[in-house]
Each structure stands twice: as C-alpha cells, then as structure tokens.
Design a protein around this nucleic acid. Structure first.
Lengths: 343, 343
DNA sequence: TTGAAAGCGCTAACAA
DNA sequence: TTGTTAGCGCTTTCAA
C-alpha cells in the first residue's frame, strides 16, 4: 500500500490555482471572493472530496463541527424512554448532511456530573454548542452555559424567570383540546391527571393545558397527582387511585411510559381497560401501539422537534443557510385504551 | 471580564519545572521519566485542572479521545428499542471518567450511508475507534474498518467466516437452559419460536441455543418462524400462529419488543396470556415489567456489555490501565407471562 | 480581490 | 532522563 498522504487544503488550493486562504474563505462562505473564484474552489473541493479537518479548525479557534447533547436522568428512565432516540434521530437528520457530529453524554448520576460534563466539553472545545432537552423550572443550565460562552438551544418552553432566546415549543394545547372533548363526549366525569416531575416545565404546561381544555369542553375539574415519570411511580399512583370507591373513570398520564405502566397495573388489579378505567398517555411513542389495549395519546412529533432544535442551533452558530423546519402542534391519537368495547 | 488565556501544556510544564514534552509523556503514561518527575507533573496538571486538548492531539496525529457508535436500523426499531440506551449508558460509564467522548450516529437510512459515515468519521479523525453493535452474518463492516485502519470492538459473536479479534459475547445458553426447563416443567408441548432478522448472528445463536436446551430438557422440537424484530412483524407472526387449531401453548420471541407486541396481539384476539398462550422475550428491557402481564424473559446485562465493549476498545487503543469488566451469562427472569394463574 | 505568514496546543523524533 | 524543535491543517489578520 502506497503512503497515502491525506488531502489537505493545500491540494485544493493547488487544483483551483488559488491560495489556501481563498479556499478557507470559500468553504466558510465568507465575503471577499470573486464569484468565479469561489465556484472554482468549491468545484476543486468536490473533485478531491475534501472538507476541512475539524481538528485543525478547532485548534485554530474555529468550529469543531460537533454539537453536544447531555442527558441526565435516572438509569431506569434513561433505559426506558424511546423519547430520546427519536429526538436524536431527528437531530441527526439535520446534522449529518452538514458534516456535524453529535457528542452524546448519558449521565445516570448526580447533578454535579452534569455541569462538569458541560464544562469539560466546552473547555476541550469538543462541541460548538448544545441542545438542551426538557426545560426545567429555574433551569441552572442556562447560567452555566452563558458563563461558559456556549451557544445552546432549548427544547421546550423556558420557565418564566429564564430569559432564553432560543426555544422550541410543541404546543400542547391543540392535542389537549381534542382530548378533553373526546373524554367529555365519552361521558367521563371523574378524571385523574397523573403529571410528571414537578421540576419540569412541561409537567406544568400539560397539566394546565389539560385543565383549561377540560373546562372549555364543559368537563369536570380533574383531580391531579404527581409522579416521577417512571413506571414504578405510575403504578403506585394508579393503585392508590383505584383503591377508593369514587375511583376515576379515566386516568390521563403525563407520558406514555406512565400510561402503559398504569394500564398494566389497573389490569393486574382486575380492572378492565378501558371499560372500568380508561387510560391516556402523552408523546406517542411506538410502544403505545404494541401493548393491549393500545394507548390513546397526545402525539408530538419528536423527530421534527429534534430536527428543528439542531437547525436552530446551527443557525445560532452562524450557519444561516439552514432552515428551521416547522414543528406541528400536538394532536390526539385515539386508540383502544379509551374506546375499546368488548361488550 | 479579564482575558482568560486557557491553560495549556506550557503552564503545567512551568509549574512543574519541566519541559512540555515531559508533561506530554507523563500524561500519556509513557516510558522514560523519573518517577518523581512524573508525580510532580501529574500533581501540577491536577492543580491547574488541565488535560490535553483533544483537538491539538488529534491534529498532531495522536488520539482524539472519542469513540464512534454508528447505529443503523429502520426508524421504527430505532425509536422503539431501549436496547441501545442501556448499552450507551454502560459505555459512558467507562468512557466519561477517562475523558473519552462518544460520537453517536443514528442512521435510519440505507446501507450506503453507513459506510459513508464510517469513512467520514475516520477521515476527519473524529474518533479513535468504533464500537459495533449487533454482529451480522458476513459483516461488511469488518473489512471496511480494516481498510480504514480503524480499531473496533464488536458486541456479539462474529460469524464463522469473519476473523475478528476483539469480541464480546454474552452467552445465551445459560438462560435458554433454564427457560427450556421452565417450559417443559410447565407442561408445554407445542412451542413456537419467533426469531429475529436472519442476517443477525444472535438470531441464529439464540434459536440454536433454545432448540438445544429444549432437547436437553426432554422437550418437544419447537416450530420456528422469523420476523423482522419489529412490532408489526411480531403481531403478524402471532396472528398466524394462533389462527390454526394446533396452536402453540407458548411463544418464545427473539426479543422483548416482539414479545410485548405478540402478547398484545394474542390478547386482542381474545386469548388469555399465559393461560391460553404463554409468552417469553429476550433482553430484559425495563418495558417488560410495565405491561400486563409482565414478560418472562432471558436477561442479558446490557449495561455491563456496553461497559465491557468500551473498555475493550480503550485497551485496543493502547490504554492498558483499563480492566475489561466481566459480562455475566444470560439468566432467566420468570414473570407473569408464563406463570400467572387467574384461576 | 487575493496571498503570505503566524500560530492554535500538542506529540515525537532527536539531541543533549 | 530530560529538553529542543518541527510540524499536524486550518483560519485570520495584514499587506499587496
């Protein structure tokens, strides 16, 4: 095997008959190049199948062409939730064609590890910016990242006190409105809402949206309890809810994971779903279609959200050629867990 | 804000009173340094909270301190399977403390994108090596990565034709033996095995192991069909299996995803699980504990497997200080889907 | 509008 | 055993 020297900016410059700095300018879409020169350079780069070395760019103080995603959750949740896989696949669909990489960090441990991870990734210049998932109430990550000077995009709605410029919301109201009507029409009068962790903004938003939608639809006031978003907690909440005489006729959960676990527990206790107690989730994870009964849910397009977040971050990083794809509002997906009738 | 110059190898060298090359040697655990000098240097590095810049190391031709994980599967499967989340969390537990990053690429598209991804990651020197998941029959990735000169570790057993040096197996036989006994003792005589995609090595291994274990336990020959590992296919296979008069009394699926979907479909058709038909999965994903009935399954410790794969790769990359943690053999986890009796 | 040159932080070959 | 030095490939002043 011959000693294959790697293609560098030098080769491209030579082929195009220009200087290396011209090539750099052309590749980074900068001003001050004759259109013809630019074209010639891009053609040469394509011919040689060359693109700038991320390591060299990083070292020089420019972009690393990589974005960071730090996910910190308990090990159970992490394993459980297909949520992130879909989100990541969506982000990838925007990043990969632009030769951006994704640095993933899954932390199943403490908070301290989280900020340390952000610090290190920034300090080592491994990433140009971050995608933050799951907006928290009084989110400490914003201040940290501003202090680190790292650009970021938040998936979700920032809490009122947080001044975050770049956000992305998938409106819960649309789906909740349809859900409320669906439940009221079905004649449900005792409704339990099992929300997620109290430190997440969307826990509040979904709960509020549901309560408002229910009111608008002329339905009853829902009873509300909180759970930790994991299956164990959902089971506990379900068991307690069904143990009383005035038990709910429908339980709406803050996500699909809890809804599936809740429906399972209800059945274990001898209740038929949905005849004795109906069940509703949120997210529309694929899993909801596998179980029996299939789970009625409020769908959000996580793939689109992931793509939009990545696009917004790239724009934030200065790539104005990226369009931020629209994120559709949530919709109701009616399945067996609210409609099945085995007569 | 003052102009915070970043800490570099120079500062550490100055503090320790040595040259920069000495610092480099100390940090990379190389020979030819007096023990005292080494100690002094490491102390200085710790004091300044410094570690080498990955970008500079990469550019210099040394390690990037990052490993790649390319996952290519259909979008449905990708979203569905908690499998990868656990594996990744396990890998992280080894990589993060050693300041290694993980570059993740989720491809929901064609094969061509896969090899292109490996090529680019290697060419851009974004990663020092790869973790490959899911050993395939006549796996084309081995040749590609050898050609690219990229070190890698395969999770799973290589197919016989593939000469792959670095592998990691979680033995299926142990769990299958216990499963066979469990089923035979329960008196099952008509057994269906629904295996995964035919191009995966573990599809064959699990199927063989199950058949052998069943024979050893004095059980009947299982009937065998294949599915695509996704929920839709599992449902189809289940429907067909239960449509005939001589229907199986237990269906063993190649993974938990299929088992859950299969159990759901059986119930939808009016069969009780496990009274009319029992169900068994493989993997022991958290999900299996949420549904009703909970899914009996052969457990493999995916977290440990991910950690072991990362450790093996780091050793392959020359970090001999990493111990490869042992991966326990599979075990049987008996749950409701084979035992519940509602009398 | 274009090109020359300096240097980002590190490692390894070589010299002392 | 330790230090000196020459780049790795790129971007960005600055000068032409």
């Amino acid at each position: 095997m011959a000693s294959q020297r790697r293609t560098t900016i030098h080769d491209v410059a030579a082929l195009a008959g220009v200087s290396r700095s011209a090539v750099s300018k052309a590749m980074n879409g900068q001003e001050g190049l004759a259109p013809g020169t630019r074209k010639k350079i891009l053609a040469a780069a394509a011919t040689l199948d060359w693109s700038p070395s991320p390591a060299a760019s990083t070292l020089r103080g420019s972009r690393s062409r990589s974005v960071g995603l730090v996910i910190s959750r308990g090990p159970d949740l992490l394993a459980a939730d297909a949520f992130f896989a879909v989100l990541i696949a969506g982000a990838e669909s925007v990043l990969a064609p632009r030769r951006y990489g994704l640095q993933l960090h899954l932390l199943s441990t403490a908070q301290s590890a989280e900020s340390e991870t952000y610090r290190q990734l920034t300090r080592d210049r491994r990433v140009d910016g971050f995608i933050l998932t799951e907006s928290r109430i009084r989110d400490a990550r914003f201040e940290l990242l501003r202090e680190l000077g790292a650009p970021f995009v938040l998936i979700g709605e920032p809490w009122q006190d947080d001044r975050v410029e770049h956000i992305l919301v998938s409106d819960a109201m649309a789906g909740m409105r349809d859900l409320a009507q669906h439940l009221v029409q079905a004649g449900h009068r005792r409704i339990l809402y099992v929300g997620g962790p109290e430190d997440l903004v969307h826990t509040l938003r979904r709960r509020e949206a549901f309560a408002r939608a229910l009111e608008d639809a002329g339905g009853p006031l829902p009873r509300v309890v909180s759970a930790a978003f994991d299956a164990k907690d959902a089971r506990r909440a379900t068991r307690e809810a069904l143990a009383v005489p005035e038990r709910p006729t429908v339980i709406v959960y803050g996500n699909d994971t809890m809804a599936i676990a809740g429906a399972g527990e209800a059945q274990r206790l001898g209740f038929r779903v949905p005849e004795d107690v109906a069940v509703v989730g949120y997210d529309n994870l694929p899993m909801g279609e596998w179980v029996y009964p299939t789970i009625t849910t409020v769908a959000q397009d996580l793939h689109a959200i992931g793509a939009a977040a990545a696009a917004a971050l790239l724009r934030e990083l200065g790539d104005t050629s990226v369009e931020i794809p629209p994120v559709a509002p949530s919709t109701l997906v009616i399945r067996e867990s609210t409609t099945l009738d085995r007569a």
